[in-house]
Each structure stands twice: as structure tokens, then as C-alpha cells.
């Protein structure tokens, strides 16, 4: 059977998904865009893409009960990735949309990048993984963001127990500096696999580096093996 393994991309509204679809295809997967919570819970691999603003995206997820579906996946240790805003949604809140609860899988609040540099940060910057990272590697990655998680917030997310009962065996970060340092990626391990991968950058637009990062992530999760 030569059927390609499916990669479910969570539909969050007006998303421009062509680049994420193209990433899936480069990885030999069949991209499937879905807003069906059952499909999102069941899927072997799910990507939460990043488009639009924090508040409307959370509202869209809640309308379709996709917030619970994603929390359940993460609690089960199923392969799940978030990109750009899709990473920010994993935190408790964002300055972009005050009063809106995020998925709350990690503690901390997303804040506007504060510096005297042009915003949004548009372009290539360095991904600098901490020494305990096994999946994330150093390299150039492409960003398009005005918000992020400041590094000074990151002690809150270290340790096994994070928040809301989400147990990880290990969590490692990568940081990037745009005036000041922010959290640019998170790998969280369950049962010997990096089940959760969050990227503030756009792996789908980060050339070969981004494609290879996702290839490693999928393979460490066994997601490209035939069923």
C-alpha cells in the first residue's frame, strides 16, 4: 500500500495554508485541512498553523471544540506542532488580545516584542537551541512576528510539570535575539519522543533547514512510517 501518511492542518479561519501544505508535500505527506475535532484528536500528526490574531484564532478553535482536541492530543503525547501564532496559542494569554484565554499548555504570556527595531520582525534570524535540545539545531530561520515569549518568562516553563496537568519528560528551548532574546522554539518530550514541537518562526518558509527540522520531528515520532 503506497498511500501517503496524512498530516492534518488545523483550520483556524482565514489562514493562508499553501506554504504549510507545500511543506507537508515536500515531506512526502498528504496535507489534510480540517476543523473536525474528532479528526484532530485521532490524527497521527497535527500542525496548528499561525495566521491572524490571538483572539480570533482562539475563538475559532473554541467554536469547533478544537481547543479541547489539541489539549487532549498533547496530554496523550501525540505528535503535534504549532507554527508562529500556532505556538503562541499554547500559552495562557497574549497582549495582542487581552482577556482571551489561550490553550494554557505552557505558563506565561505572549508579549509585543519591545525594542527600537522595526516591527514586525520580518526576515531570517538565528535559532539558538539550549544545550539540552535534541531535536532543535542551530541555524537560520524565517520570522514574521510582532509578538513573542520573552526569555525572562522561560523559567516558568522549565521542569517536568508545566501547567494544567501536562506532564512532559523533558522540555528544551531555542532562543533568538531581536534586540532582546525571545523563545523561538520549544521541543517537549513524552515517552521518548519529541511529541510537541512549537516554532515561533516559519519552518515552511525556512528553506532546507525548516524542511529537515520537520523531517526529523516526524521521523522521531514515527509519523512517516506506513500504518
Amino acid at each position: 500500500m503506497s498511500e501517503k501518511p496524512r498530516l492534518v492542518i488545523v483550520e483556524t479561519g482565514v489562514a493562508n495554508l499553501a506554504s504549510v501544505r507545500a511543506l507537508a508535500e515536500r515531506l512526502g505527506m498528504e496535507p489534510v485541512v480540517s476543523a473536525d475535532p474528532e479528526e484532530v484528536i485521532r490524527a497521527r500528526t497535527v500542525i496548528l498553523p499561525g495566521v491572524g490574531a490571538f483572539g480570533p484564532a482562539m475563538q475559532k478553535l473554541k467554536e469547533n471544540e478544537l481547543d479541547v482536541a489539541i489539549q487532549d492530543r498533547v496530554a496523550e503525547g501525540l505528535a503535534t506542532a504549532g507554527i508562529c501564532l500556532g505556538m503562541q496559542l499554547f500559552f495562557e494569554a497574549s497582549e495582542e488580545s487581552e482577556g482571551v484565554d489561550g490553550l494554557g499548555i505552557f505558563q506565561g504570556k505572549v508579549r509585543r516584542l519591545e525594542n527600537n527595531l522595526p516591527l514586525p520582525q520580518l526576515g531570517w534570524n538565528r535559532l539558538e537551541p539550549e544545550p539540552d535540545a535534541h531535536l532543535l539545531q542551530p541555524g537560520w530561520v524565517y520570522f514574521a512576528n510582532s509578538y513573542g515569549v520573552a526569555v525572562r518568562a522561560h523559567p516558568e516553563m522549565s521542569g517536568k510539570k508545566v501547567s494544567g496537568g501536562f506532564d512532559f519528560d523533558a522540555i528544551a528551548l531555542a532562543t533568538t535575539t531581536y534586540g532582546s532574546p525571545f523563545v523561538s522554539a520549544i521541543e517537549a518530550w513524552r515517552k521518548g519522543r519529541p511529541s510537541l514541537l512549537l516554532c515561533q518562526f516559519h519552518p515552511e518558509l525556512s528553506g532546507i533547514f525548516g524542511t529537515q527540522l520537520f523531517a526529523r520531528w516526524l521521523d522521531l515520532n514515527g509519523a512517516r512510517r506506513p500504518l
Partner: peptide, 8 residues
């Protein structure tokens, strides 16, 4: 230093 590369 911003860290960001100038784009060509």
C-alpha cells in the same frame, strides 16, 4: 545589534 539578517 538586532540579530536579524538583511534580506537580499
Amino acid at each position: 545589534m538586532s540579530g536579524l539578517a538583511v534580506r537580499i
